[in-house]
Design a protein around this nucleic acid. Sequence first.
DNA 1: GTGAAAGCGCTAACAC
DNA 2: GTGTTAGCGCTTTCAC
Lengths: 345, 345
Amino acid sequence: MARSPNDTRRPLTLRDVSEASGVSEMTVSRVLRNRGDVSETTRERVLEAARRLGYVPNKIAGALASQRVNLVGVIIPSFSNLVFPEVLSGISSALEDTGLQPVVGVTDYSPEKEERVLYEMLSWRPSGVIIAGLEHSVNARAMLENAGVPVVEIMDVDGEGVDAVVGISHRRAGRHMAEAIIAAGYRRIGFLGTKMPEDHRARKRLEGFNEGLAAAGISLVDTEFYSGGSALSKGREMTEAMLARSPDLDFLYYSNDMIGAGGLLYCLEKGFDVPGQLGLAGFNGVELLDGLPCKLATMDACRREIGRKAAQIVARRASGAAGEAEDQIVELQPVIQLGDTIRTL
Amino acid sequence: MARSPNDTRRPLTLRDVSEASGVSEMTVSRVLRNRGDVSETTRERVLEAARRLGYVPNKIAGALASQRVNLVGVIIPSFSNLVFPEVLSGISSALEDTGLQPVVGVTDYSPEKEERVLYEMLSWRPSGVIIAGLEHSVNARAMLENAGVPVVEIMDVDGEGVDAVVGISHRRAGRHMAEAIIAAGYRRIGFLGTKMPEDHRARKRLEGFNEGLAAAGISLVDTEFYSGGSALSKGREMTEAMLARSPDLDFLYYSNDMIGAGGLLYCLEKGFDVPGQLGLAGFNGVELLDGLPCKLATMDACRREIGRKAAQIVARRASGAAGEAEDQIVELQPVIQLGDTIRTL
DNA sequence: GTGAAAGCGCTAACAC
DNA sequence: GTGTTAGCGCTTTCAC
């Protein structure tokens, strides 16, 4: 690991190891990659020299020569929304022993930035791309189509994918939640969620929710949207505002668990009869809910699982397995957890 | 963006653009990188051809030729701990307009994995490395020392850094919290935290906390440690267990806000007089706390700020600015927020 | 089992 | 303003 005293700060090359060990560059390369037959003695000599010098191979040169890159581009909207770190965690763990490494890019929910990040990533010729959502700019879509590597669009299956797709149907999720709420006898329902110009999944959930209500001949009584700030306290504020405006509501559907949890805490404090007089539900199934005084109804969005599956698809395809056709679309089924905030008749 | 009909799936090269535009490869390269003087007409012709073909430059080749890589390696223990996504968010935003791109690696709090991830990263010859913590294996430290690029160790300043360091003193943070608690008149204090074989920062906070208590002639009455599971509900369970065991405690110090919040919810439900009879405090200053029925005392760990600062150092150094000496150690000062769970005398 | 030669797709440096 | 030449540090291929 130590560097020689006459240290020039020039990064070490294969040649340095070759000279230090008296073995050709080619054989050094073979040893370092565990490829081809090398005698045990040469092997040891090379490894010893490499270790002693503190040689770190240059993957840039390696990638250029071999046309192989062990990087998987992952493009997500944000780190702030708890959901995406969880997806990354799933990707990261599934990639663990594949020799592949995730490289993360963030779009901040901006299609322009998504385009830039994607371009940037593709310029590193990754072994695959995992990207959140099905909605992309025309250019971004064209890049994905021509990337020449596996592309997995994640989180959402409601739409047309470029290649493989792993996610849930947010439209159906919304619809199912509506059905569960109606089945429980609630009728005067309010919706609280994010402003969603670019949050297509939240939008689809709301659309599905509205469809579910419409099928039962009812429609939303009130809606409230927010952006920015602490979701928990936003949930409180919005709930207070909505109940002040529409005191006769008997159900509040939140577009995510954090604002739902805020609303729940507010309702409990105010002494509302939950779930008798007022029912509540969120979305995502965040672990956080387990610690609340009473469990918010929610739906698991299968975040880690989506990450894992997507990474597996990339890994399999990258390893040369064919199967381009089999796993085009993987739809996971989120399950409603009634918790303590939807009454059972 | 469209590819020609006789599409061979071979990635396009500069040569393709050169031929399509009738301009030399070198000039095409100049246009695409906005470098050197190129006449407006050639420029247009090249851009038009590149766009039409859907050319994406190969940064691998570019990096090898120019010996420049616009990647910054970021090594964190986990995505699951809210803290690190926040740091990433800070890094990501500070790198925004620098042309640098973060590449994230995860260690799962394992020194061996840290070593592997670091090796992997360095093999891409990044422009800099940002790595959480000051504790590394001997090999990892040697790699950092010989990396030949800026290295910023973040989160913690209690120890010896390799190069630049940006963080807070967890030891002092613990000590200050102890002082604040004692100043408020609490005396029988319990500590609840993670099992921390590899969580050096939590360990240092606890050590500092103990020092602070010792200075006032007192010591911890009870301690409880957990690992895994939902922090919020763990906070509840641990609090219940500890108060059952040591009912005469008058203060609970939690190693993070999530378990603290769980404990707080539990205490409020049980009708404890907080902060009169029982005080509580956590650590981190997570946004979440804003939505709780009453605000948990905490200390801001300056997570985003640490990310920003670290990224700025890398960006500045990478851009050739000297200043190797000036900003070796940046210590941020976390501020105690008493909230509603430490009484004021 | 080992080595030599020829690139991978770009850019630095220099010529014109 | 534009083109030519010579690599960057590896791996592929083929010879021995």
